[in-house]
């Protein structure tokens, strides 16, 4: 049955799916390689697959950050949901995985059980996410471009291959999104023993998939067009680099931001092509988001649990 305490996390999962689907499948839809509805279905399907097949390490890492009770888990999920609202109101780019972890950290601090080593790993991974995505796109662009330029096909064939590869990389990115984010969304309920891992994965993946299925067409085109403005091939490299980065961190067990990985990968393409693909303002906003998102979530969950403990 669906435990009511998980409502906040389900909302968080839904928001993850709704926001990140545009980043992942936007280029494929904007370049008309894939129909909007097909993109939504594929995204939901691969998110579920990634959640079930690749999220174990993240559950392990997040469990090691702090211990949880039913109350703290509930407080963390509510703090996450409120943080999404606050960050949206402030129009700051909020990473939903950072919100989830920020609220766990807030709870840990309130309980005086912070695992410093675990936290260091998490922060290092967040900082490393865009750098790694940028390095991957920078390194793979030339060899893959060389391969594509040498293919013995007509220009129509070349387009077809790019479209197929773009859809393939988008599916991979959706898989990585599921593998990386389901633990961030649901781990508090596993640590607090409200849910077994499998049930948590089920509820979390369904929430993310539902969010993916409700991603608005307009935002898919807006985000996708920004990426595709580079060109479909570069968009494919960006999505693949971001997916590889996010998947790598799913193995490491740290939920990271897909949109920050995408930003990093675009930056890599920009360096490669010697053009300005990202404005300084975008990087600044990303940095502010890095600092503010976990901080707001942490403070909120800290306040919530402190208040709760005082009045019970």
């Amino acid at each position: 049955m669906f435990p009511v305490e998980t409502a906040g996390s389900v909302l968080l999962g839904w928001a993850v799916g709704r926001n990140d689907t545009a980043h992942i499948f936007g280029p494929a839809v904007a370049s008309q390689s894939l129909r909007y509805f097909h993109a939504l279905l594929l995204c939901a399907l691969f998110v579920i697959a990634g959640s079930f097949l690749g999220s174990q390490a993240a559950f392990h890492t997040l469990a090691s950050l702090s211990s949880q009770s039913v109350t703290t888990a509930f407080a963390a999920s509510i703090a996450s949901a409120v943080t999404i609202f606050v960050m949206t109101m402030l129009r700051l780019p909020a990473s939903l995985s950072q919100i989830a972890i920020g609220s766990i950290i807030g709870i840990s601090i309130a309980q005086g059980q912070v695992n410093a080593t675990g936290l260091e790993t998490v922060f290092a991974c967040w900082g490393f996410t865009p750098i790694m995505a940028a390095c991957i796109s920078l390194l793979i662009y030339k060899p893959v471009a060389h391969l594509f330029n040498k293919l013995p096909v007509t220009i129509f064939g070349q387009d077809k291959i790019i479209q197929i590869c773009l859809v393939g990389t988008c599916c991979y990115a959706a898989y990585a999104l599921g593998a990386n984010n389901v633990a961030g969304v649901m781990s508090v309920f596993v640590t607090s023993k409200v849910l077994p891992v499998l049930a948590a994965v089920f509820i979390g993946s369904m929430a993310i998939a539902a969010g993916a299925l409700m991603c608005p067409k307009q935002s898919m085109f807006t985000v996708g067009s920004k990426l595709i403005r580079l060109d479909p091939f570069s968009a494919m490299i960006v999505v693949f680099s971001a997916a590889l980065t996010v998947h790598f961190f799913a193995f490491v067990g740290v939920p990271v931001s897909t949109s920050q990985a995408v930003t990093g990968a675009i930056l890599g393409i920009g360096i490669m092509k010697g053009m300005q693909t990202i404005r300084l303002k975008t990087l600044l906003m990303m940095f502010v988001g890095w600092l503010c998102t976990p901080a707001v979530a942490g403070v909120l969950s800290f306040l919530l649990i402190t208040l709760f403990l005082q009045y019970t």
């Binding site: 390689s33 220009i155 387009d159």
Partner: peptide, 10 residues
Amino acid sequence: ALVPESREDI
């Protein structure tokens, strides 16, 4: 199916 950018050029 053709990438819109290519279609425009052609």
